[in-house]
Write a protein that binds this DNA or RNA. Structure first.
Lengths: 127, 127
DNA sequence: TGCGAATATACCTTGACACGTATATGCCCT
DNA sequence: AGGGCATATACGTGTCAAGGTATATTCGCA
């Protein structure tokens, strides 16, 4: 399992990561919330831990897992190469929208449309 | 091939995408630059096209491939869920990097180091 | 000390996908 | 028209990872 990209390619792992955003969780809690057999959870957590996505602390028989930031930053760094590119397209999209704005007044509130990354829209998961 | 994450999990596909950042390329150009057999290139391009990462136009016998922004935005949207989380940790990382880091002058325009996305560094590919 | 809960690991099976080789398709040019 | 280049597709093969089931380990507690 070489790269961070292969780690997050697995839907169940992404589900686990999403769960852990809110707070740390035990294996059993993850298991119940995701309706996933316990060995599956443990195995995915192992992969995530070895890839640096999570770390765990021991609480009696429980293990509490929480996120670690570095791998996400690595994904982000990769995305950076493409940010300028896609921002240009967002600009084009915005020009388009601005033209529609003129033709149809609509409900824009800001004068200057904010620029830069983080302008994507969540399309949701495909099942 | 369900999700965008599985698409970018493949190292050769990421290489192709990186190549296309600079400009559009023909299959043959990709093939030569990446030293990859032509059917391999074509097959990966097909996957990338069907996932919306690239589009192609015909130029006689050649096909010119270029990037499309949407899937990247989708990855970006996913990352958003984790941005707040990792930003809290970035301060410590930045202090560390700022000490290590005189090699990256970068093009900061602002005096205050901006917070939030786009702060990651490229760790490179693992082979 | 022995039982039960929580978690990890071992083993097996299966399916997906990446690759190589071969071949098909389409276009240009003489 | 035909040959050659550029690209796409078909097919067979091997590998690897995810899932399921069973079992091991560790700890709390009666």
């Amino acid at each position: 399992m070489e790269s961070v990209f292969e780690i997050i390619a697995e839907p169940n792992r992404r589900a686990i990561l999403s769960l852990l955003v809110s707070s740390q969780q035990s294996v059993g809690e993850i298991e119940r919330q995701l309706r996933m057999p316990q060995p599956t959870v443990s195995k995915h957590l192992r992969v995530l831990r070895e890839a640096g996505f999570v770390e765990s602390t021991v609480d009696a028989q429980r293990r509490l897992y929480r996120l670690k930031p570095e791998p996400f930053q690595e994904v982000n760094a990769w995305l950076d190469r493409f940010r300028r590119f896609w921002s240009d397209h967002v600009d084009a999209l915005e020009r388009h929208l601005d033209r529609m704005d003129q033709s149809a007044p609509a409900k824009r509130k800001t004068k200057k449309r904010p620029r830069g990354p983080n302008r994507g829209r969540d399309k949701g998961e495909k099942k």
